[in-house]
Design a protein around this nucleic acid. Sequence first.
RNA 1: GCUCCUAUCGUCUAGCCCGGUCUAGGACAUCAGGUUUUCAUCCUGAAAACACGGGUUCAAAUCCCGUUGGGAGCACCA
Length: 476
Amino acid sequence: MTANIPKNIRVRFAPSPTGPLHIGSCRTALFNWLFAKNQGGEFILRIENTDVERSKKEYEDGIVEGMKWLGLDWDEFYRQSERLDIYEKYLKQLLDEEKAYYCFCSKEELEADRQAMLSQGIAPKYGGRCKKFSKQESEEKINKGESAVIRFKMPLKEIEFHDMIRGKVKFNSELIGDIVIAKNLKEPLYNFGVVVDDYEMKISHIIRGEDHLANTPKQIAIQEALGFENVKYAHLPLILTPDRRKMSKRYLDVALEDYRQNGYLAEAIVNFTVFLGWHPVDDREILSLEDLIKEFDIKRVQKAGAVFNVDKLDWLNSQYIKKMDASELALKIKNFIPSQWQSDEELLIKAIGAEKERMRTLAEFKDLAGFFFELPNYEKNLLIWRDAAPEKIIENLKMIAMELEKIDEMMFNKKDLEQIIMPLTEKYGVGDLLWPLRTALSGKQASPGPFEILEVLGKKESLKRIEIAINKLQNK
RNA sequence: GCUCCUAUCGUCUAGCCCGGUCUAGGACAUCAGGUUUUCAUCCUGAAAACACGGGUUCAAAUCCCGUUGGGAGCACCA
């Protein structure tokens, strides 16, 4: 039995370039990629652009770029538009063997049929009107210039298959009807192209969204008609919006690009989306791509849909930001800040270091850290700690300025500054000393601590800001 | 309408396949406390779920059936 020889593991991600890369598609790609890597198999990227009207090169570029950004590399790359001859060959085979036939019905006729069936409460399907034409008749009609599509003769039977996630799934093909598999010999349609490609590319496992479950029996029927061997299937649960519907723009950003632009890290997106419907054996929540490759097991994927929880994504993102080096973060944060902030690389890195644990997304840095790069503008009352007297605050600021003045530039780091200044709080009061100092430096109600800011800003700039604060309080 | 899929805290989930160890575990979010000049981080704690009804069994979150709820698919799109 040659059929029992295990095939090499080969999976594919087959997006159609008809829009920006969807976050749900990314997750599907990820599951495929992880499955391949875990099993030592190959991952194939196939652009399904048979729909000439809707497919755009820019979207294809977006897919490629998005995949690279996520770190999902591929072993082979194909475009369906470059494989039209292959589909034609198999289309002819089906036509010759009379497993497919030309259909001359107009769209109007079809629509009327559909409505009629719907009103009778039966599942709408093509009735097979054009099946009666012989091959010769059909060819004559075509030669006369009649327009026609190619329909597949759906065998009437029960189609059953094993889904790696769901187990046994059964469909009755009588409800399906003769589907259109190509507009003509040169323009194949989805269900047909998929079957041919998956066979030609020796795909062993098809891992895709649950929304394709109902396509599976159609594809199996075509496979059988063509004499192809069966493929293994896994249908992933869908990602849901908070109202438990299929992910849509109405509720959430759906494009990977949106998340990227909002300051999410690829690592966080990967980690988050794989956890939508899957979980490792232990309680770990933060897993790198390498960890995931090790741990991934398709048997552990969930059957029910999973709600996209932005709060958890934010948390994960903040975890990754916290773990990352400030210098590495600096590279990634450049698209989120004004170009002037980038002129002093060292300052930028230090500022990121100071704000790292406050950021949930890279985009938040801009609002958090402006004062490091520009003189802050603030109300003088912000300098007053609770109900302290302004005179006292002025006094304390002057005192701290004097103390700072004495400190060597070399000692202007968080640790040393803390050691020198903290003892002073015993005499002057923690709040009365540190609050005005911090607000003088940051101009903000909430910010990193004063010692951190002092270190980032440096002696000269810090003293300048304290002086400004004193002047503010003295109404100068 | 028809077909298929599905059901553990608000959310993501562990446990379910191989019934007892489950007074159902973890994470996010929430709330309370602690650390802290502020914010954030961090730490501690609390509240929070096996959809319902029948079976099977000494024993069911776990097995079976049904109900209800939810979702998806029904194109000359993919």
